[in-house]
Amino acid sequence: MPKIVLASGSIRRESANAAVIATVRRLLEQRDESYEVTELSLRHFPLFDEDLESDGGTPELLAAKAQVASADVLIISSPAYNGYPSGVLKNALDWLSRPGDADRAPLEGLPTVVVSASPGPAGGENVQPHVRQILGNCGATLIDCEQVAVGNAIELRTPEGVITEPSVVKALDGLVDAVAGHLAATPQEAAA
């Protein structure tokens, strides 16, 4: 069963990006295909420190890296903090770009999709090229799909923590279509 890891670039529980991730999860779970869907908490990543890396890292860090290393796809929803990804997202990507004791870094060759959300009308679309560039530098493979930037996302977040606005759901469903198409076209191998 393909493994999909979802990550919100904002650690605030009621963030717009957490709502996007919850909506994507719901869309994946409504599919006929079966996926193992998990969420990666960026709270488990200490500030990047080569001394800590040399000491083997923390158990939570190692578990987070293993979670991503075993994924077939990573979907990231990024906020735009002054036009750039959040510090917690950048920090997590730095850790995930490092192999540690493994044969390869968790992000190396990992098919990845980037979406963004913000309280503003542009939806943080200006952050997406930066996140994609970082992911490319980390060795991730970007899945080709329409860019999705969810504007006014705080207003669209329901009390249940998802987004139900039809145009946003349709755009996110297109992103899920791209992921499903990629997985269907790619032979699934046992994760290393």
Score class of each variant (00 low, 15 high):
residue 1 M to L: 14
residue 2 P to S: 12
residue 2 P to Y: 06
residue 5 V to C: 14
residue 6 L to P: 14
residue 6 L to F: 14
residue 6 L to G: 11
residue 7 A to M: 11
residue 10 S to I: 13
residue 10 S to Y: 10
residue 10 S to W: 13
residue 10 S to A: 14
residue 11 I to H: 07
residue 11 I to Y: 01
residue 12 R to S: 04
residue 12 R to C: 00
residue 15 S to D: 09
residue 16 A to V: 12
residue 17 N to T: 08
residue 17 N to M: 03
residue 18 A to M: 14
residue 19 A to V: 12
residue 19 A to Y: 07
residue 21 I to G: 04
residue 21 I to R: 06
residue 21 I to D: 03
residue 22 A to N: 11
residue 22 A to Q: 02
residue 22 A to Y: 01
residue 22 A to H: 01
residue 23 T to F: 08
residue 23 T to K: 08
residue 23 T to D: 05
residue 25 R to P: 04
residue 26 R to S: 07
residue 28 L to Y: 04
residue 28 L to F: 08
residue 29 E to H: 03
residue 29 E to G: 10
residue 29 E to V: 00
residue 30 Q to H: 13
residue 31 R to P: 14
residue 31 R to F: 15
residue 32 D to K: 13
residue 32 D to F: 10
residue 32 D to T: 10
residue 33 E to T: 14
residue 34 S to Q: 13
residue 35 Y to W: 12
residue 36 E to F: 11
residue 38 T to L: 14
residue 38 T to G: 12
residue 40 L to W: 11
residue 42 L to M: 08
residue 42 L to P: 08
residue 42 L to K: 00
residue 43 R to S: 14
residue 44 H to T: 07
residue 45 F to R: 13
residue 45 F to D: 13
residue 45 F to Y: 15
residue 47 L to V: 10
residue 48 F to I: 02
residue 48 F to H: 10
residue 51 D to V: 00
residue 52 L to E: 04
residue 52 L to Y: 00
residue 54 S to Q: 15
residue 54 S to W: 11
residue 56 G to W: 08
residue 56 G to M: 06
residue 58 T to Y: 01
residue 58 T to V: 08
residue 60 E to Q: 05
residue 60 E to G: 03
residue 60 E to T: 02
residue 63 A to Y: 06
residue 64 A to K: 01
residue 64 A to Q: 00
residue 64 A to F: 02
residue 64 A to C: 02
residue 64 A to T: 06
residue 65 K to F: 04
residue 69 A to D: 09
residue 70 S to V: 07
residue 71 A to R: 11
residue 71 A to H: 10
residue 72 D to H: 07
residue 73 V to L: 04
residue 74 L to M: 02
residue 74 L to D: 03
residue 79 P to G: 13
residue 81 Y to S: 03
residue 82 N to V: 08
residue 83 G to R: 04
residue 83 G to I: 08
residue 84 Y to T: 07
residue 85 P to F: 09
residue 85 P to W: 10
residue 86 S to N: 12
residue 86 S to T: 15
residue 86 S to L: 14
residue 87 G to S: 15
residue 87 G to P: 08
residue 88 V to L: 08
residue 89 L to P: 02
residue 91 N to T: 14
residue 91 N to E: 12
residue 91 N to Q: 06
residue 91 N to F: 14
residue 93 L to V: 06
residue 94 D to E: 09
residue 95 W to K: 00
residue 95 W to I: 02
residue 96 L to C: 01
